[in-house]
């Protein structure tokens, strides 16, 4: 029953009209709101999933002009994500199973089709990106990707499903800005004098769960701790001056291919 409800709502989103009426002059979102890499990633996804029906110019479906960037029945980005996820069955649009990172990119592109020339968008080289990750970038000295690398930093095997292109790019140049609070490094001294450094996995009122530097999972009662320090500084270096813009784009493109199992 619930699924039926969601589908029928999605139909209603698209059914009455495709565009914002003149009565609704205010629209959220202009190019500055969306990172360039998200738009670029979205353009790739659009070519892969949407071109066939909507066309390269977004006008392939009669009465629908995606290039307007405005959708009367999906005024917010969240509604647009829902619409893409649920599809529009009565008009023949299938539901698309896209992860959050891809949805972010696709929405960024749809909102900016009217001002972006797809031909001018940069496309990183994922194979080159992988080489940088594994060699020059030395990312696997801390991170793990599938069966390679270390445990000190978050596992990146599914980073391309969970982090948008914009977030990954910012993370490379300003790691502190993108570090999720849960991933913050912790320094612990127990009442028995044992020192533990690691990365936080979970925390509640009474306990904390961490991965230590060898990747061991440790759960501690806060009442047993003498010192418990959570750092807001990531151990990750900035790659702003270490990698060229092209190399950064290659790394982002590679990381976006990591979708987990």
């Amino acid at each position: 029953m619930k699924r039926g409800l969601v589908l029928s709502s999605a139909v209603a989103l698209f059914a009455s009209a495709s565009f914002v009426s003149a009565q609704n002059p205010t629209i959220q979102g202009h190019p500055e709101d969306y990172p360039r890499v998200d738009i670029e990633h979205g353009a790739r996804l659009y070519a892969e999933h949407c071109d066939r029906c909507h066309g390269a110019n977004g006008d392939g479906v009669s009465g629908v002009n995606l290039r307007s960037g405005r959708f009367r029945n999906a005024t917010t980005d969240q509604q647009l994500r829902t619409l893409i996820t649920n599809g529009f069955p009565t008009a023949g649009m299938p539901a698309f199973t896209l992860d959050p990172a891809d949805l972010t990119g696709l929405v960024a592109y749809l909102r900016n089709m009217n001002s972006v020339d797809r031909g001018s968008l940069k496309h990183g080289n994922p194979a080159h990106g992988r080489t940088i990750v594994e060699t020059k970038g030395a990312c696997l000295s801390c991170h793990r990707i599938n069966d390679k690398g270390n445990w000190n930093a978050p596992n990146l095997s599914d980073i391309g499903a969970n982090r948008s292109a914009g977030s990954i790019e910012r993370s490379l140049v300003d790691p502190n800005s993108q570090m999720w609070p849960i991933n913050r490094p912790v320094h612990i001294v127990t009442k028995s004098g044992k020192t533990i450094d690691g990365r936080r996995l979970n925390e509640d009122t009474y306990t904390v769960q961490i991965a230590d530097e060898e990747g061991r999972m440790i759960s501690l009662n806060k009442s047993d701790l003498r010192q418990f320090v959570v750092s807001t500084k990531s151990h990750m270096p900035s790659y702003m001056d270490e990698l060229t813009p092209d190399e950064l784009a290659d790394v982002v493109t590679y990381l976006l291919t990591l979708k987990g199992m």
Partner: peptide, 26 residues
């Protein structure tokens, strides 16, 4: 973490009513 007056841009929204067992946002 780098600027407490700014949000973490591009991060997915916090689940509100039905979050799982991990407190992602702390």
């Amino acid at each position: 973490a780098s600027d407490p007056t700014k949000i973490i841009p591009g991060a997915p929204p916090i689940p509100n009513l039905r979050r799982g067992p991990i407190n992602n946002w702390t």
